[in-house]
Design a protein around this nucleic acid. Structure first.
Lengths: 354, 354
DNA sequence: TCGCCCGATGTAAGCGCTTGCATCCCTGTG
DNA sequence: CACAGGGATGCAAGCGCTTACATCGGGCGA
């Protein structure tokens, strides 16, 4: 270690600053504290049968030696990986990463690790087979938007790995999700109340032969509401936006190219709605005047650009999911579904029809 | 394991589908292949002194037993964690998460793990001291926006842990960054060429006593360019936007509240520019007409809403950083700086002054 | 006073890998 | 044809923890 000139602030040279990699082992601590390694291990892990005075001595030794346990050794010995898998399609969507941040927040706090994985429709089945990363020693898996239907749910429940599902409700599996039908109804009702008659829908492709999934549920709520109001939803008014920004752009362009374009559009995600903005602009129209737009999520950018949307507490869903996973791993927590609230946030992207 | 009704598609019941947690050990494989565990280990890790025929037999056994190595045991035994730390301020900004995705992409591909950590100004010094997560057994650290100055750089270089810095250039440390001064010059020049005379700057607070960091560099490029064009930059035209959406909103409101508001504003991040949008709207003004706005990053939403911005290849920077880290760990790769290209993307948020 | 019970601690056997060193055997060479 | 050289493999000692089981020492009821 070369000599360092001292400086100001938190970057001062500090002659005995520990290097990044801790070197002391549990045996060093035991020696320092004058106890056995077993006692150190127990003291560190809040085992009840450790005298307070002993615990103190151990802690002091830990401090002095700047001891940090080697998690690999701990995991090997205990057989517990303290790692939770997180599998989702489209890791880059705002929804997914927000979920992930929520999950990460509580796992990190509990000193658990997070293993990230993607599962597109093609590889989704590997969850149950040989995906090496997840066949590895993880304690549980958090699944996002599996869309596996009841058969899949039964298979999931039969695995001997704790599972929490985010984004949909499945039988016999702990889950956190919103009432997607209701969310779509909220959006449709809002548009109808504003006086719109020609309302279009942009969702995502349902690539699985499964009846119940997010796009399907939202579509149902939307359709039902329109129908109840005596409104039609022509086939041309239903577009696939792929849940991406470019997808939303394409869908909007298609809608605006129609002989009778809609006066309002409900997008199943804010990101698709963002993509639509450009298409509207290119057509020389104004959002909220010539065409109303409603999204879904309440993405951080939705506020600034004034997008009306159905807000779902995504980060909170991630946090709750992680907490449920930890409860399951602790042996607490029963299998149940946890619904989260959805609220319509009215902004300027939706208004009365021109 | 309960009986499963069979179904269609990838969710078919499969009587001998392996559970998520692999059970076979390296000894099982050795027995199955008729070799020693050492040979299995070598075969699996591409050791040169393993006969091709032996490797084949081992692989067959691995397949048959669906063996997956226990990474904890491997790490304990080898002393290599195959884990890289990633420390950044503000994990939730688009810039950071994009960087992270890039890093994650290549690390995952090389079967490395990523350990995430935050380092705000208060805790930043812990990198060098006792942050438990990082004192643990990681092979290297990728640091984002450390802003530690040359003294800090010298300390970093002196640590015995491989380090790659993202977002700034430091002496004796491998880094990936853009020419921030040039980026700001690009933005300023653009605005000046459009004919703007009253141009404001929204950056982030420099909370460290360090001369060189991103906000400072961008401010310098911006100031220099204005000066060279004979333009003034009054103190009131320099606002702190905290690099967040609400921060950008506040800054823009402050600017518009000025007796002589600017006709153009350069934001040091797109997210701050997004926040500004709302303030402009609330003031009854139109972006690109009454007030021009230029951002920095090229956030995915910048395109859809037509934000002129200075694009930096963020994800690519993350990928490169990770690759450099792996090279360093392999003993290849020398300490050097890797510059990335910056380009101005002109959109409709900037136009001639009204 | 004598056990008994139980809280507190120590002993030591792994956990499933990696790897230095020993061993074996097959070539090529003198 | 003996032997050196080196490729291929096996042996076994850990890596740094956790934890079942053994041990120890008081306090307490009989």
């Amino acid at each position: 270690m070369q000599a360092l000139t001292s400086g100001e602030g938190p970057w001062d040279a500090d002659s005995d600053a520990p290097a990044l990699v801790g070197r002391a082992t549990i045996d060093d601590v035991a020696r320092e504290a004058g106890v056995s390694t077993a006692t150190v291990s127990r003291a560190l892990r809040q085992h009840p049968y450790v005298a307070e005075s002993t615990r103190q001595r151990v802690m002091t030794a830990v401090e002095r030696l700047k001891y940090v346990a080697n998690s690999n050794a701990a995991r090997l010995a205990s057989g517990q990986s303290r790692t939770v898998g997180f599998i989702a399609p489209m890791l880059t969507s705002w929804y997914t990463s927000e979920l992930m941040v929520g999950v990460e927040e509580v796992l990190t706090h509990e000193r658990f690790d997070l293993l990230i994985g993607t599962a597109n429709s093609a590889s989704r089945e590997r969850i149950f087979r040989g995906d090496a990363r997840f066949q590895q020693h993880i304690d549980g898996v958090i699944l996002v938007d599996v869309f596996c239907g009841d058969d899949g749910a039964r298979r999931l429940a039969a695995l001997d790995t704790p599972i929490v599902v985010l984004g949909e409700q499945l039988q016999r599996i702990t889950s956190v999700s919103v009432d997607n039908e209701r969310g779509a109804r909220l959006a449709a009702k809002h548009l109808i109340q504003l006086g719109h008659k020609r309302i279009a829908l942009v969702g995502g492709h349902n690539d699985l032969d499964v009846a119940k999934n997010v796009p399907t549920e939202r579509a149902k709520g939307f359709r039902d509401t329109l129908q109840a109001a005596g409104l039609r939803l022509p086939a041309a008014y239903v577009q696939d936006g792929d849940f991406t920004i470019p997808g939303g752009h394409r869908a909007m362009r298609a809608l605006l190219g129609l002989p009778k374009p809609p006066s309002a559009v409900f997008f199943m995600s804010d990101e698709m709605a963002f993509g639509a903005l450009e298409a509207v602009r290119d057509a020389g129209l104004r959002v909220g005047h010539d065409v109303s737009i409603v999204g879904f999520d309440d993405h951080p950018v939705a506020g600034p650009i004034g997008l009306t949307t159905v807000r779902q507490p995504v980060r909170e869903m991630g946090r709750l999911g992680a907490r449920l996973m930890l409860d399951t791993l602790d042996g607490f927590g029963t299998v149940r579904h946890h619904p989260m609230e959805l609220t319509l946030v009215e902004r300027i992207s939706s208004g009365r029809p021109a």
